[in-house]
Write a protein that binds this DNA or RNA. Structure first.
Length: 196
DNA sequence: CTTACGATCATCT
DNA sequence: GATGATCGTAAGC
């Protein structure tokens, strides 16, 4: 994988849990007009279809969850709780539902742009939650279905030497499917949304 | 530091 | 008509 180039389709074309684990430590790039923002992915969660009661796709395809069943490597952005957007990257072959929720970032570049979009005093709080990071990066419904394997407004690139330990736990904010340890995060990173 | 709750709306039943 | 892959604030300990 070439540094600086978007991760290829093949990266996303496999088991969702596997993809989730390997996305930790990669860099999310958001190009918005003239500003370029980058953040290290420090926390994610895997969501599947049939077998995962916590997933939007559990009861089959609908208008909203359609990207989860479509081509891997695309953005699945949805609006929730009347206030927030959440960003996922789709996984698995066409016809099989899967997506990885990006839950937290460590801001790397374009901090000034992020703070303009999400005015806040403390840097730690800028992108340490799924709804927070979408606001800081200016991600909304308009980016739903965007192809993240292209150098467009939103994509993910490899990051040199993850180094830190990737830890796993139950997912956050769900009632069903809590038995599955499908949340992955960097144990020593201060931008993780919540500690165990 | 920890817990509780209201905001607010798209989606599904 | 109920629910929720959340956040910010307020109140409690």
């Amino acid at each position: 994988m070439t540094e600086g180039q978007p991760l290829p389709r093949g990266f996303y074309l496999r088991d969702t849990v596997h993809v989730a684990e390997r996305l930790v430590g990669k860099t999310l790039v958001r190009v918005r007009g003239r500003s370029r923002m980058e953040g290290k992915i420090v926390e994610v969660e895997a969501y599947k279809g049939d077998e995962d009661p916590a997933s939007h796709a559990f009861r089959g395809p609908t208008r909203r969850n359609m990207p989860m069943f479509a081509e891997p490597g695309h953005a699945y952005v949805y609006f929730t709780y009347g206030n927030h957007y959440c960003l996922n990257v789709t996984t698995e072959p066409i016809g099989i539902a899967g997506a990885v929720l990006i839950r937290a970032l460590e801001p790397l570049k374009g901090l000034h742009s992020m703070k303009r979009l999400r005015p806040i005093a403390c840097d730690i709080e800028l992108t340490n939650g799924p709804g927070k990071l979408t606001k800081a990066l200016g991600i909304d419904r308009a980016l739903n279905n965007v192809d993240m394997t292209k150098s467009g407004p939103l994509f993910i690139v490899d990051h040199e030497s993850v180094g830190s330990l990737v830890q796993r736990s139950a997912r956050v904010g769900i009632r069903k499917g809590t038995d599955r340890l499908w949340r992955f995060f960097l144990s020593d990173n201060p931008y993780v949304s919540r500690r165990s």
